[in-house]
Design a protein around this nucleic acid. Sequence first.
DNA 1: AAGTGGTCTAGACCACCAT
DNA 2: TGGTGGTCTAGACCACTTT
Lengths: 245, 245
Amino acid sequence: MMIASNLDLQNDKPLYLQLAETIKARIAQNIWSLGMMIPSENELAKDFDISVGTVKKALSVLVQEGVLFRRQGKGTFVASPDFSKSFSRFFRYDWQGGKRAETPGSKVLSIEVIQPDRPVIEKLQLEGSQQVFRIKRVRTIQNKPFVIEDIYLPYERFKGLETMALDQRLLYPIYNETFATPVIWADEYLQPATAGQADAESLGIQPGDPVMCVERLAYTYQDRPVEWRRSIGRGDLFRYHIVVK
Amino acid sequence: MMIASNLDLQNDKPLYLQLAETIKARIAQNIWSLGMMIPSENELAKDFDISVGTVKKALSVLVQEGVLFRRQGKGTFVASPDFSKSFSRFFRYDWQGGKRAETPGSKVLSIEVIQPDRPVIEKLQLEGSQQVFRIKRVRTIQNKPFVIEDIYLPYERFKGLETMALDQRLLYPIYNETFATPVIWADEYLQPATAGQADAESLGIQPGDPVMCVERLAYTYQDRPVEWRRSIGRGDLFRYHIVVK
DNA sequence: AAGTGGTCTAGACCACCAT
DNA sequence: TGGTGGTCTAGACCACTTT
């Protein structure tokens, strides 16, 4: 049961776009949350007093945008972006020709609450004198380190994170489930570099060996930045794959 | 005037996808060429004996894929990939954070026709003993080299390329306009490395300096691979930007 | 005025899923 | 069996472009 609303025939904007925006707004307000089924075509059509065809068009737009997914016979659901998948694209694990997509282990080296410096303030769009978490961790495959990460998070949003078992779980599901902060999309910059003394030791390589430096700014709903991280990956294990269309 | 054909109600595949594929095939066969207007919704519906709604759906799929574009009041046209744009999509080199999107110069070092080795044969899906072009060139910004490229092309498809002024123009527009081979999408792999003696000299850096190694397989219509290239870029000038969704 | 695509409707029938 | 989405139809009306 849903209160109909604010679709406007007088508006320039087509009804199906108005509906799409309304649905996105409801997801952003957590009226409909990740993974949840939203009302059926028929219900939406009835609630908003438009035809089913128009509802179909609105939903197809949101499916296209990755906001929803649909299953014949079941319903329409709010999509949860799966970053563990996109993560696994970034690295190749096939170093023995084995195809097993092994889940990387992770070990937190330190977690502290600090006063951020200017670049972090700007990237996370912090105001006043907000503090941030700084997490350093190393990720491993078969117990060999292959990436070290330096992660910054706004303290307020993630208060309580420091008490959690961060070694056991991926971070993005924690953001989503515990802090109601799903990561929707991210901006990444890649640059090649060579390992310094400290990084080389952490990664088990020689200073001067190639490494990939990845900076990522991750956003949640309404394009709010919620995490900034810099990763340094072993060059010999790092392979970034992208399909350009 | 168009001979109707081969849409099959008995087929598992929905009519609108059958139509979309038929249209793509006609474009691939150059029955409808780049930039040309294709028949209107009504004509297509009549020719294929299906409803206008189904035609609309087929066309919207192709618009989504970037194969067609539509203009209200004018018609539906075969899209010509915009190469100044796609170029900047494929290569995102920020010059010291400057925003000037300067067009890089290029200088061909060598072009030869050779018998490809196995990796090239597999990537370009060559049959029998087909030969390939191998082009080596260096790209420059402000007369400074920043990328060296090693490019492989099937000889048959691009016969005559060796006589063209490759220094003056971008390659992809040449593929498109002269050889009716638009590049539709590409697969890229990025990996950090350090410069060897020869590469360092070409790029004006020191051996051991960081470089980015980019391998790209470019495809035309019907997912046919038509170019394979390996690029080595100066690490200090290379910054790859990607939005992960 | 005639032709184009863009939006919207009100159905029909089907395939799939739960019960 | 009833509800869901997926396909398809046959219109209507509108906005835009060209002649």
